[in-house]
């Protein structure tokens, strides 16, 4: 029985991964993201108050025993809203990252492997999309489409995809010329099988790192859209929206804006660092 070169390499990588212990940066960033994921899943259960419960008579207050991060102008508990906000803060960027990853990997593999007119057409479209100012286009698109998180996520996935297509395509072009790919073709394996079973595992480190970077970009961009009031509807517990709603409270309860802003920063930094670490570990393996 013949063994494909790619399969041999993957087996070795898996063994080495098991041997190498994760460094402190990986542990810290992974731990932070795990905590945030837990908050996204169970945040509404462990929140001390109903995140939507208002107390207009109370209004904005500074942190105290009753409200650890204080309250906003509508008397809502900031901590509870931050915990509940983890869901939209992480879920929608995750959808964007997975969507971007799926589209860019499929199209990048196709363009890089098939070449010819498919590659030429795809790359011109990619050039066109890359030439557009991303965040500005996003704001215009979401505005024209009538706002709403669904359109924002879709538009973001479409706008993030071209850059990643180009990366996957160039990696695929390099891999398709290697001996194991040539061998697979000689054996008569189908194109789809060669692309997804043999080439994809060898470009996986970059794809995974790219997905994490897309997650970070989507997290920041969605927070920005919410800040501009064209993402999620008012009242939704969401970190970006909280920054926008509470930025006028800097003199009354700055924590109402600072805490969600810090959470966006921490989540983005942790995901970036984890992406870097994963890329290095997968590449070295």
């Amino acid at each position: 029985m013949s063994v494909m070169p790619g399969a041999v390499r993957l087996g070795g990588r898996a063994r080495r991964l098991r041997r190498t212990r994760p460094g402190p940066v990986t542990l810290l960033s992974g731990g932070i993201l795990a905590l945030m994921a837990a908050a996204a899943l169970f945040g509404t259960w462990v929140a001390p108050y109903d995140p939507a419960a208002q107390d207009l008579a109370l209004g904005a207050t500074t942190p105290g025993w009753a409200h650890w991060a204080g309250t906003d102008e509508l008397g809502r508990d900031v901590l509870s809203r931050c915990l509940a906000g983890a869901r939209s803060a992480l879920l929608w960027p995750l959808v964007v990252a997975l969507g971007t990853c799926a589209m860019s990997t499929s199209l990048g593999l196709l363009a890089g492997y098939r070449r010819g007119w498919i590659d030429a057409v795809m790359m011109r479209v990619v050039d066109l999309l890359i030439a557009m100012p991303g965040l500005l286009m996003l704001i215009v698109l979401v505005g024209v489409l009538g706002g709403g998180i669904g359109w924002a996520v879709l538009a973001m996935a479409v706008l993030f995809t071209p850059g990643d297509i180009r990366v996957v395509r160039s990696l695929t072009m390099a891999q398709r010329e290697l001996a194991y790919a040539e061998a697979a073709r000689t054996l008569g394996l189908g194109r789809a099988r060669i692309m997804f079973r043999h080439l994809l595992p060898n470009i996986a480190p970059t794809v995974v790192a790219g997905a994490l970077l897309s997650f970070v970009a989507a997290l920041v961009a969605l927070s920005g859209l919410s800040f501009l009031g064209i993402g999620l509807p008012a009242g939704t517990p969401d970190w970006g929206l909280m920054i926008e709603e509470n930025r006028g409270l800097l003199d009354l309860n700055p924590w109402a804006a600072v805490v969600p802003a810090a959470l966006v920063t921490i989540a983005a930094t942790a995901a970036t660092l984890l992406g870097d670490q994963l890329f290095e570990r997968l590449s070295d393996a």
């Binding site: 939507a52 208002q54 207009l56 102008e73 509508l74 505005g143 009538g146 706002g147 709403g148 009031g229 064209i230 993402g231 999620l232 509807p233 008012a234 009242g235 709603e245």
Partner: peptide, 27 residues
Amino acid sequence: VKALQAIAADLAAIGVRLDLQPLPTEQ
């Protein structure tokens, strides 16, 4: 939008739910 959120909370108390739909100013 601040007032609408307060109104939505008041109406929720009697079972009337508001679907707040953000739109750009011109739209």
